[in-house]
Write a protein that binds this DNA or RNA. Structure first.
Length: 266
DNA sequence: TCGATCCTGTAG
DNA sequence: CTACAGGATCGA
Protein backbone atom coordinates (compact mmCIF):
# COMPACT_ATOMS: atom_id res chain seq x y z
CA UNK A 1 0.00 0.00 0.00
CA UNK A 2 2.59 2.53 0.52
CA UNK A 3 3.77 5.86 -0.59
CA UNK A 4 3.24 8.94 1.49
CA UNK A 5 -0.39 9.52 0.44
CA UNK A 6 -1.54 5.98 1.17
CA UNK A 7 0.32 5.92 4.48
CA UNK A 8 -1.30 9.23 5.33
CA UNK A 9 -4.73 7.78 4.57
CA UNK A 10 -4.01 4.83 6.88
CA UNK A 11 -2.94 7.21 9.65
CA UNK A 12 -6.03 9.35 9.38
CA UNK A 13 -8.27 6.37 9.69
CA UNK A 14 -6.31 5.01 12.64
CA UNK A 15 -6.55 8.33 14.43
CA UNK A 16 -10.30 8.00 14.40
CA UNK A 17 -10.43 4.34 15.32
CA UNK A 18 -7.45 3.46 17.46
CA UNK A 19 -6.54 6.42 19.64
CA UNK A 20 -7.56 5.78 23.23
CA UNK A 21 -7.62 2.01 22.87
CA UNK A 22 -5.71 -0.18 25.30
CA UNK A 23 -3.56 -3.06 24.09
CA UNK A 24 -4.19 -6.27 25.99
CA UNK A 25 -2.08 -8.70 24.02
CA UNK A 26 0.59 -8.65 21.33
CA UNK A 27 0.92 -11.64 19.09
CA UNK A 28 3.61 -12.09 16.45
CA UNK A 29 2.57 -14.57 13.77
CA UNK A 30 5.63 -13.97 11.60
CA UNK A 31 8.85 -13.16 13.42
CA UNK A 32 10.19 -11.54 10.25
CA UNK A 33 7.41 -8.98 10.49
CA UNK A 34 8.51 -7.85 13.93
CA UNK A 35 12.24 -7.42 13.48
CA UNK A 36 13.95 -4.06 13.73
CA UNK A 37 17.15 -2.63 15.04
CA UNK A 38 16.99 -1.12 18.51
CA UNK A 39 13.52 -2.50 18.91
CA UNK A 40 12.26 -3.70 22.26
CA UNK A 41 10.04 -6.72 22.69
CA UNK A 42 6.50 -6.13 21.52
CA UNK A 43 5.31 -7.39 24.89
CA UNK A 44 6.13 -4.00 26.32
CA UNK A 45 3.14 -2.67 24.41
CA UNK A 46 0.79 -4.76 26.51
CA UNK A 47 -1.19 -2.68 28.99
CA UNK A 48 -0.35 0.56 27.17
CA UNK A 49 -2.81 3.01 25.71
CA UNK A 50 -2.58 4.26 22.12
CA UNK A 51 -2.05 7.98 22.55
CA UNK A 52 -1.30 9.43 19.16
CA UNK A 53 -0.69 8.39 15.53
CA UNK A 54 1.88 10.18 13.42
CA UNK A 55 3.38 9.75 9.99
CA UNK A 56 7.04 10.30 9.21
CA UNK A 57 7.79 9.72 5.54
CA UNK A 58 6.34 6.31 4.87
CA UNK A 59 6.58 5.28 8.51
CA UNK A 60 3.60 5.08 10.81
CA UNK A 61 4.36 5.96 14.40
CA UNK A 62 1.92 4.78 17.04
CA UNK A 63 2.73 6.56 20.28
CA UNK A 64 1.87 4.59 23.36
CA UNK A 65 1.71 5.40 27.03
CA UNK A 66 4.71 4.40 29.11
CA UNK A 67 7.28 6.01 26.84
CA UNK A 68 6.99 3.52 24.03
CA UNK A 69 6.09 3.84 20.38
CA UNK A 70 5.39 1.39 17.60
CA UNK A 71 7.00 1.98 14.28
CA UNK A 72 5.23 0.39 11.35
CA UNK A 73 6.56 0.28 7.83
CA UNK A 74 4.15 -1.08 5.24
CA UNK A 75 6.77 -1.57 2.53
CA UNK A 76 5.11 -2.94 -0.62
CA UNK A 77 2.06 -4.79 0.62
CA UNK A 78 1.53 -3.96 4.27
CA UNK A 79 -1.54 -2.50 5.87
CA UNK A 80 -2.41 -1.48 9.41
CA UNK A 81 -5.99 -1.24 10.55
CA UNK A 82 -8.53 -2.01 13.25
CA UNK A 83 -10.83 -4.99 12.97
CA UNK A 84 -14.11 -5.10 14.92
CA UNK A 85 -13.62 -8.61 16.32
CA UNK A 86 -10.14 -9.57 17.49
CA UNK A 87 -10.80 -13.22 16.75
CA UNK A 88 -11.74 -12.73 13.12
CA UNK A 89 -8.53 -11.96 11.28
CA UNK A 90 -7.19 -13.01 7.91
CA UNK A 91 -4.38 -15.44 7.22
CA UNK A 92 -2.19 -12.55 6.10
CA UNK A 93 -2.14 -10.91 9.51
CA UNK A 94 1.50 -10.97 10.68
CA UNK A 95 1.18 -9.03 13.93
CA UNK A 96 -1.95 -8.85 16.04
CA UNK A 97 -2.69 -6.49 18.93
CA UNK A 98 -5.79 -7.44 20.84
CA UNK A 99 -7.54 -4.39 22.23
CA UNK A 100 -9.35 -4.26 25.55
CA UNK A 101 -12.69 -3.46 23.90
CA UNK A 102 -12.66 -6.68 21.88
CA UNK A 103 -11.32 -5.23 18.66
CA UNK A 104 -7.77 -5.65 17.36
CA UNK A 105 -5.15 -3.57 15.63
CA UNK A 106 -3.64 -5.80 12.95
CA UNK A 107 -0.68 -5.61 10.64
CA UNK A 108 -1.45 -7.43 7.42
CA UNK A 109 1.28 -8.03 4.90
CA UNK A 110 1.17 -10.47 2.01
CA UNK A 111 4.84 -10.29 1.08
CA UNK A 112 6.26 -10.10 4.60
CA UNK A 113 8.52 -7.24 3.65
CA UNK A 114 7.13 -4.68 6.03
CA UNK A 115 7.64 -4.62 9.76
CA UNK A 116 6.36 -3.57 13.13
CA UNK A 117 8.75 -2.78 15.92
CA UNK A 118 8.54 -1.28 19.34
CA UNK A 119 10.91 1.42 20.45
CA UNK A 120 11.44 3.59 23.42
CA UNK A 121 10.44 7.06 22.27
CA UNK A 122 14.01 8.27 22.53
CA UNK A 123 15.43 5.51 20.37
CA UNK A 124 12.73 5.94 17.78
CA UNK A 125 13.47 9.60 17.45
CA UNK A 126 17.06 8.73 16.71
CA UNK A 127 16.08 6.08 14.18
CA UNK A 128 13.77 8.42 12.31
CA UNK A 129 16.20 11.31 12.27
CA UNK A 130 17.92 9.86 9.21
CA UNK A 131 14.83 10.43 7.14
CA UNK A 132 14.72 13.52 4.94
CA UNK A 133 12.47 16.53 4.89
CA UNK A 134 8.68 16.20 4.86
CA UNK A 135 7.54 17.46 1.46
CA UNK A 136 4.24 18.73 2.84
CA UNK A 137 5.80 20.65 5.70
CA UNK A 138 6.39 24.38 5.61
CA UNK A 139 10.11 23.71 5.79
CA UNK A 140 10.01 22.28 2.28
CA UNK A 141 10.51 25.51 0.36
CA UNK A 142 11.80 26.15 -3.14
CA UNK A 143 15.03 27.42 -1.64
CA UNK A 144 15.38 24.21 0.34
CA UNK A 145 14.93 22.08 -2.76
CA UNK A 146 17.43 24.16 -4.73
CA UNK A 147 19.94 23.74 -1.95
CA UNK A 148 19.34 19.99 -1.69
CA UNK A 149 19.55 19.46 -5.44
CA UNK A 150 22.89 21.20 -5.65
CA UNK A 151 24.44 18.56 -3.44
CA UNK A 152 23.61 15.44 -5.45
CA UNK A 153 24.53 13.97 -8.78
CA UNK A 154 21.97 11.18 -8.50
CA UNK A 155 19.53 10.80 -11.38
CA UNK A 156 16.44 12.84 -10.54
CA UNK A 157 14.13 9.83 -10.19
CA UNK A 158 16.52 7.92 -7.93
CA UNK A 159 17.00 11.06 -5.90
CA UNK A 160 13.31 11.59 -5.32
CA UNK A 161 12.87 8.01 -4.17
CA UNK A 162 15.79 8.16 -1.76
CA UNK A 163 14.25 8.69 1.66
CA UNK A 164 17.34 10.42 3.04
CA UNK A 165 16.62 13.57 1.04
CA UNK A 166 12.87 13.98 0.78
CA UNK A 167 10.61 11.64 2.71
CA UNK A 168 7.68 9.65 1.44
CA UNK A 169 8.00 9.76 -2.35
CA UNK A 170 8.01 6.40 -4.11
CA UNK A 171 8.06 5.03 -7.61
CA UNK A 172 4.67 6.22 -8.77
CA UNK A 173 4.58 9.76 -7.46
CA UNK A 174 8.23 10.35 -8.34
CA UNK A 175 7.42 9.55 -11.95
CA UNK A 176 4.32 11.72 -11.90
CA UNK A 177 6.07 14.71 -10.34
CA UNK A 178 8.93 14.52 -12.83
CA UNK A 179 6.48 14.38 -15.70
CA UNK A 180 4.66 17.47 -14.49
CA UNK A 181 7.94 19.33 -14.09
CA UNK A 182 9.11 18.07 -17.50
CA UNK A 183 12.32 16.68 -16.02
CA UNK A 184 14.09 13.70 -17.55
CA UNK A 185 14.34 11.03 -14.82
CA UNK A 186 17.96 10.28 -15.74
CA UNK A 187 19.13 13.86 -15.45
CA UNK A 188 21.54 14.32 -12.53
CA UNK A 189 19.83 16.28 -9.81
CA UNK A 190 22.47 18.98 -9.72
CA UNK A 191 22.11 19.53 -13.47
CA UNK A 192 18.39 20.26 -13.42
CA UNK A 193 17.68 23.91 -14.21
CA UNK A 194 16.43 26.22 -11.54
CA UNK A 195 13.19 26.79 -13.40
CA UNK A 196 12.51 23.09 -13.54
CA UNK A 197 13.35 22.63 -9.88
CA UNK A 198 10.81 25.29 -9.04
CA UNK A 199 8.27 23.43 -11.12
CA UNK A 200 9.28 20.20 -9.41
CA UNK A 201 8.76 21.72 -5.99
CA UNK A 202 5.20 22.64 -6.87
CA UNK A 203 4.61 19.34 -8.68
CA UNK A 204 5.66 17.31 -5.64
CA UNK A 205 3.29 19.20 -3.39
CA UNK A 206 0.40 19.09 -5.85
CA UNK A 207 0.82 15.42 -6.67
CA UNK A 208 1.00 14.37 -3.03
CA UNK A 209 -1.98 16.47 -2.01
CA UNK A 210 -4.10 15.19 -4.86
CA UNK A 211 -3.04 11.65 -4.08
CA UNK A 212 -3.92 12.00 -0.41
CA UNK A 213 -7.43 13.08 -1.34
CA UNK A 214 -7.74 10.17 -3.73
CA UNK A 215 -6.26 7.71 -1.24
CA UNK A 216 -8.55 8.80 1.56
CA UNK A 217 -11.50 8.46 -0.78
CA UNK A 218 -10.60 5.01 -2.08
CA UNK A 219 -9.20 3.65 1.17
CA UNK A 220 -11.43 1.00 2.70
CA UNK A 221 -12.95 0.33 -0.71
CA UNK A 222 -11.63 -3.07 -1.78
CA UNK A 223 -10.08 -3.50 -5.19
CA UNK A 224 -9.00 0.10 -5.52
CA UNK A 225 -5.42 -0.64 -4.63
CA UNK A 226 -3.26 1.20 -7.16
CA UNK A 227 -6.19 3.13 -8.49
CA UNK A 228 -6.06 6.07 -6.16
CA UNK A 229 -5.16 8.46 -8.88
CA UNK A 230 -4.84 8.69 -12.63
CA UNK A 231 -1.26 8.84 -13.75
CA UNK A 232 0.25 10.53 -16.76
CA UNK A 233 3.15 8.11 -17.09
CA UNK A 234 3.29 5.40 -14.42
CA UNK A 235 2.32 2.03 -15.85
CA UNK A 236 1.54 3.54 -19.25
CA UNK A 237 4.34 2.08 -21.38
CA UNK A 238 3.55 2.48 -25.08
CA UNK A 239 0.43 4.53 -24.42
CA UNK A 240 0.23 8.05 -25.85
CA UNK A 241 1.49 10.92 -23.73
CA UNK A 242 -1.40 13.03 -22.50
CA UNK A 243 0.42 16.15 -23.62
CA UNK A 244 2.22 15.37 -26.88
CA UNK A 245 0.72 12.05 -27.94
CA UNK A 246 4.05 10.30 -28.36
CA UNK A 247 4.46 6.91 -26.63
CA UNK A 248 5.46 6.67 -22.97
CA UNK A 249 8.75 4.85 -22.43
CA UNK A 250 9.73 2.40 -19.72
CA UNK A 251 13.34 2.23 -18.56
CA UNK A 252 15.01 0.66 -15.55
CA UNK A 253 16.63 2.69 -12.80
CA UNK A 254 18.04 1.13 -9.67
CA UNK A 255 16.23 -2.08 -10.48
CA UNK A 256 12.86 -0.38 -10.64
CA UNK A 257 10.65 0.68 -13.51
CA UNK A 258 10.67 4.28 -14.58
CA UNK A 259 8.02 5.58 -16.95
CA UNK A 260 8.36 8.88 -18.72
CA UNK A 261 7.75 10.79 -21.93
CA UNK A 262 11.06 11.23 -23.76
CA UNK A 263 9.59 14.06 -25.79
CA UNK A 264 8.18 16.15 -22.95
CA UNK A 265 10.88 15.32 -20.38
CA UNK A 266 14.34 16.34 -21.58
C1' DT B 1 26.94 3.01 -6.12
C1' DC B 2 25.46 -1.31 -7.67
C1' DG B 3 23.33 -5.77 -7.33
C1' DA B 4 21.28 -9.27 -4.70
C1' DT B 5 17.93 -10.20 -1.44
C1' DC B 6 13.83 -10.37 1.42
C1' DC B 7 8.66 -12.82 0.18
C1' DT B 8 4.11 -13.74 -2.05
C1' DG B 9 0.51 -12.58 -5.32
C1' DT B 10 -1.10 -11.60 -9.70
C1' DA B 11 -1.14 -10.35 -14.58
C1' DG B 12 0.07 -11.74 -19.03
C1' DC C 1 5.13 -20.66 -17.01
C1' DT C 2 7.68 -15.84 -16.48
C1' DA C 3 7.80 -11.12 -15.32
C1' DC C 4 6.86 -7.88 -12.34
C1' DA C 5 5.21 -5.45 -8.09
C1' DG C 6 3.48 1.44 -4.68
C1' DG C 7 10.34 -0.53 -0.71
C1' DA C 8 14.52 -0.66 1.71
C1' DT C 9 18.78 -2.87 3.42
C1' DC C 10 22.99 -5.22 3.13
C1' DG C 11 27.42 -6.58 1.47
C1' DA C 12 30.87 -6.36 -2.07
Amino acid sequence: MPELPEVEAVCRKLRKEAVGAVIDEAQVMKPRSARGAHSAELDHAVGQTIRKIERRGKNIVVHLSGGYALRVHLMMTGNLFVIPDARLYSARVRVHFRLRDGRALVFEDARILGNVSLYKEEDLKKALSKIGIEPLSKEFTIEKLLELAKRSRLPAKIYLMDQHHIAGIGNMYAAEALFRARINPEQPMNAVTKAKLKALHQAIIDVLKEAIKAAVRSYSKPGTYGKDMDFNVYGRKGKPCNVCGKPITRIEQGGRSTYYCPHCQR
